[in-house]
Nucleic acid binder design. Structure first.
Lengths: 249, 249
DNA sequence: TTCTATTGTATCATTGTGTTACAATAATAA
DNA sequence: TTATTATTGTAACACAATGATACAATAGAA
C-alpha cells in the first residue's frame, strides 16, 4: 500500500483513483549472492513499507502496477506478476496512515479516502539489480534495497506479503525462467546456480544443475569467455529469446 | 461480477460494501464425465454470467468469496482459491448492468455505484456435484450447471475468466488433490482417472495413473467392492485425510 | 463351463536425477 | 618453460520416475 506521491492522492476524496483498492509491489533484485527487496521509508516517521500505489480511474490494473514499479526503479522491461490479493479486515489500521500524513503536514479528516479500508493486490517484480535506479518519491526519506533476510520491520502485513511473494517465486522456479529478469545480460553457469540456490535457500549439485539448464534449450553460449582467477574460464551465457513460461513441457 | 440479491446492493450509494471491487466465482463440478460450471441468468434479460458478489465493509475478502459461493450451492465445505484479478479498463461496460437493473424495475441514476468500474477478483471453487444444490437469487431466472464446452455466451469477459480458471486448475493438478473436492466420498480408480482426463483434456495411461495415485499415499481402499458389469469388480477408494496441498514433495 | 470386458499389477524400456570422478584450462609461481 | 592450484565442463554410474506392453484375476452373461 500507499505511496502518496501526487497532489491528487492527498485529495480528501481521492478523485481520479479507484476506491478501496491498492497495489503493493515486492520488487526482487539479486546482488552479492543475496536476494534483495526494494523498500521505502515514509518521511519523518521511520516507517518502512513496500512500494505501492493506486489505480487511476481509466487505467488497466496491470498498467498501474507497472507504473508503480517503474516509478521506483526507472526501468520499463520488468517481469511483473500478480501473486495474491490481501483482503483480511484485520489489515485495516488507519492510525499508521494518520501518522504518515501528519509527518507530511496533512491533517486528514476522519473520512479521508486514504483512511478507509483497502484491499491490496500483491504483485512481485524481478529486475536487473545492475540497471535499477531506486528513486524515492517526495514523501519518502529513502527508497533502497534490503537483504531479504535483514529487512527492517514493515508496516501492516507487509512482511507477510514479502514472505508470500518469495513462496510464489520459489514455486514458480520450475515453470518460469527467473534468471532472465534477475541477472544481467551475460552470466556464467555459476552465477545462475547461485541465484537459484539463493532463491531456494539450499545448495544444488553443480553437474545436475548444469545438465538440466542446458537441456532446457533456453541458454546460448556467448563465444566470449571470462577472465579472472587461476582456473579454467567459464562460458558466458545469455537467454535465447523471450520464452518466459515453459510450463507446457 | 454482480449478483444483486439484497436491498442494500441496489442502494444508490452501495453503503455497506467496498467500492469498485467485485468477486467472480468459477464453480466447477464433475458429472457424467464432464466438467461443469455453475452459471446464473439475470431475470428477464437472457444474460448469463458467473456467480459473483461484493465485499461487505467489515468482511474478510476470502469470507466474502465463500459466502458468494455457498449461497449458490448450499455447501460450506468447498475448495476455494483466488486465481487472478481482472482489472482491464476495457472490462467496464455499464450498459449491460443498466439492462439487468431495468429488468428488475430499477432505473439507476448515472452515478449509481453498480454502474461504476469494478476490479474483479477471480476465485475458482471445486465442489461435489452430487451434494451441491444450485440456488438462484431473487433476480435470477436460473442458476444451473453447464458443460464447460457447451456454455452460453456470457456477459463481459466472463468466458475468458472461465478459461483462465481452467488453466489454473490444470496447472494445479500436480500440486493439489483435486479429486478430493470434485468426487463423491467413495470412487473407483477409473472415476478418478476420468476426472483427470477431463480436466486435462487428454487420455492418460491406466497403469501409470494407478501407480502414481497409489504412490501418493493419499488414497485408502474401502473394503467394499463395486457391483455392475460382466467383469472384475474395482475397488472403491476414499481420500485419507484433509491433505489438500502437497507441493513440498 | 466358457466367454468377454474390465481391473490390478508385473515387467521392461526410456528418461530424469543424484552422485562421484576426472580431464581441461587459466592464472600463478617455481 | 613447467609445475601448481582452483575451478569448470562433462562423462559415467546408480537409482528413481515414468511410458508402454503384457497378462493374470474375476464378475457377470451366454
Amino acid at each position: 500500500m500507499t505511496k502518496v506521491h501526487s497532489a491528487s492522492e492527498t485529495d480528501e476524496k481521492g478523485e481520479g483513483f479507484l476506491k478501496n483498492i491498492a497495489i503493493d509491489a515486492v520488487i526482487f533484485g539479486f546482488h552479492d549472492d543475496q536476494l534483495k527487496v526494494l523498500l521505502i521509508e515514509y518521511k519523518g516517521t521511520g516507517l518502512f513499507a513496500l512500494p505501492g500505489g493506486f489505480i487511476k480511474t481509466e487505467e488497466d490494473l496491470n498498467s498501474a502496477a507497472l507504473r508503480v514499479v517503474s516509478e521506483r526503479i526507472g526501468l520499463e522491461d520488468i517481469f511483473l506478476e500478480q501473486f495474491y490479493v490481501f483482503g483480511d479486515y484485520s489489515r485495516y489500521n488507519p492510525v499508521q496512515f494518520k501518522i504518515i500524513m501528519s509527518a507530511n503536514g496533512i491533517v486528514p479528516a476522519d473520512d479521508h479516502w486514504l483512511l478507509k479500508r483497502f484491499i491490496s493486490i500483491g504483485y512481485y517484480a524481478l529486475v536487473d539489480f545492475t540497471r535499477a535506479k531506486p528513486t524515492p518519491a517526495a514523501i519518502f526519506d529513502s527508497c533502497d534495497w534490503y537483504d531479504l533476510n535483514n529487512m527492517p520491520t514493515l508496516i501492516q502485513d507487509h512482511t507477510f506479503i514479502v514472505k508470500k511473494a518469495l513462496n510464489t517465486l520459489r514455486s514458480n522456479l520450475d515453470h518460469k525462467v527467473v534468471g532472465l529478469n534477475l541477472l544481467p545480460q551475460d552470466f556464467t553457469m555459476g552465477d545462475l546456480q547461485k541465484l537459484y540456490e539463493t532463491i531456494l535457500g539450499k545448495k544444488l549439485l553443480r553437474p545436475a544443475f548444469q545438465r538440466k539448464m542446458l537441456a532446457l534449450g533456453i541458454l546460448e553460449r556467448v563465444a566470449k569467455k571470462w577472465t579472472g582467477g587461476a582456473h579454467k574460464a567459464p562460458y558466458l551465457y545469455k537467454f535465447i529469446n523471450e520464452i518466459v513460461d515453459f510450463s507446457s513441457k
